[in-house]
Design a protein around this nucleic acid. Sequence first.
DNA 1: CCGCATCCTAAAGGATACTG
DNA 2: CAGTATCCTTTAGGATGCGG
Lengths: 127, 127
Amino acid sequence: MDDTAPSDVPLRLTAAHRQLLDQVLDKWSLQVLDALCEAPRRFNELRREIPVVTQKSLTATLRRLERNGMIERVVLSTRPVAVEYRLSPVGAGLQDLIDALYHWTANVLPAVDRARARFDGDTADGR
Amino acid sequence: MDDTAPSDVPLRLTAAHRQLLDQVLDKWSLQVLDALCEAPRRFNELRREIPVVTQKSLTATLRRLERNGMIERVVLSTRPVAVEYRLSPVGAGLQDLIDALYHWTANVLPAVDRARARFDGDTADGR
DNA sequence: CCGCATCCTAAAGGATACTG
DNA sequence: CAGTATCCTTTAGGATGCGG
């Protein structure tokens, strides 16, 4: 993976980059990827694990992640049919990023809560 | 900020973490933060820079980021009024993450394009 | 210049029923 | 078990006009 010249890149997100991030970092995708980072999962395992996702949203999310090459869909020829979803090599590269996001949120969450309380308290003054 | 014990955390995203990420990593927020990483901006500067954002969406995004303590809103007492938005200390911690996201997307984008073409080509077979 | 309020459309997403 | 199809509600977000 040629990751040279990390300092002279424009460092602004282009449309193509944002489109990819939008398809991969949305609400449901994050949770699916988070689960698959741990181990491959079957469809209904994900459904149970993700709390309140509907079948429709989960299907759409899995299809989108598959289309973008983040996950692989493996049909096991058992009876009845079983389908397993697992991280692709490309998708596996997301582990570190999700990890970093997790640690960042964990660190700032207290400060964020304070900021929210402060903001919500400022309702009657000179805004 | 105590950033100890990075290895024995459960590493699963909780509802509170995801809610924060949802408020900060959405389509418009990413672009606003990306711009503010470079330098503070005025309202209409952001509007011009973000291409197709409407006033309503930009206002909503800025309010949400301000509420979560990611950015600070500074009213300059000029004539007419000028308002400057800048990254808060907490929000500044996002620079590295946005950076990491950028580099990841830049690296995988070719592979993603291939995956998309392959997926979209598989339309008539046994799916 | 900055932003709020209103209206309205388009898209996401839930509920439910049915199929290989 | 792993979906597809349909309907229907909720929300995001664009357009426009006004106010501080």
